[in-house]
Write a protein that binds this DNA or RNA. Structure first.
Lengths: 134, 134
DNA sequence: TACTGATGTTAGGTTTTCTAACATGACATT
DNA sequence: AATGTCATGTTAGAAAACCTAACATCAGTA
């Protein structure tokens, strides 16, 4: 890999570089949805001086995860809980391991009553980022 | 590294994700400069439907290289030649090696007459991307 | 039936970006 | 010294993108 390529590939994934329009394309969410999730503290995009939202790649990841969990039937509260637990995990486990599948399943069980009746919409899954590749 | 992080880290560096405002911050170039370089075919950013420029990380790299070469005294024509030669190199050498230091020096010699009198402005160098890290 | 949660839609205002034109300042040429 | 060129600054007016706030919708729940 060339030197200059190596350099920008190291850009921190937490840098707020992307306007909402780009994020809409990357996630297939609507502006309304993205703003709604922010309103409920599921994401916290930066703001420019002019108050425009600016998202990092980590924010995009987070949004894709929100989308995925919603499609699995969780509601906002459930997703918030999942993120809280993930954060705790990251704080306690210096290893930086992911929220275990077991815990995810436990959350899912809690949410089952709510989720039971929801339709499983056929759409892009969390992790299906082929869209990101030209 | 988590799965979702791995996913977006694979986003192609050629994807046009960044508006010019972000690029201005990343490169410390002015909008005028960036547009001028485009006018002279040193970069070719994508356009949205609404005709707004959208830049990839590779474009940012290219702009940083332009900036660096300008500071070394090259003019637009010289930079264009450097890029042409780089492209040839990449086409002929499947190994994908960089333009050799020898060839760069040869270009620099050609440009010396022009460059001789220019001031070496003290400023950020090509490769100094600490600015990119929060 | 009435309520809630997630999202759609619209309106009006602000920020960002666009092109095009003219200005400037350093350097080169005559 | 006068003129030309190159890279960049500056400005104006228009268009695109984004903002908040409010009201609408619609499925699922009580």
């Amino acid at each position: 890999m060339s030197n200059q390529k190596k350099r920008t590939s190291e850009i921190r994934k937490s840098m707020p570089l992307l306007p909402i329009g780009t994020v809409i394309q990357l996630t297939d969410l609507t502006a309304r949805q993205i703003r709604y999730y922010e309103e409920h503290d599921l994401i916290r995009p930066h703001r420019t001086e002019g108050n425009q939202r600016m998202f990092s790649l980590n924010d995009v990841d987070q949004l894709l995860e929100i989308k995925d969990l919603l499609e699995q039937g969780l509601n906002i509260a459930g997703i918030k809980k999942v993120f809280e637990m993930k954060k705790e995990e990251n704080e306690h486990n210096k290893i930086g391991k992911e929220l275990s599948e077991d815990k995810i399943r436990s959350i899912l069980r809690e949410e089952m009553k709510i989720a039971q009746s929801r339709l499983q919409k056929p759409s892009l899954r969390y992790g299906d980022v082929n869209r990101l590749y030209q």
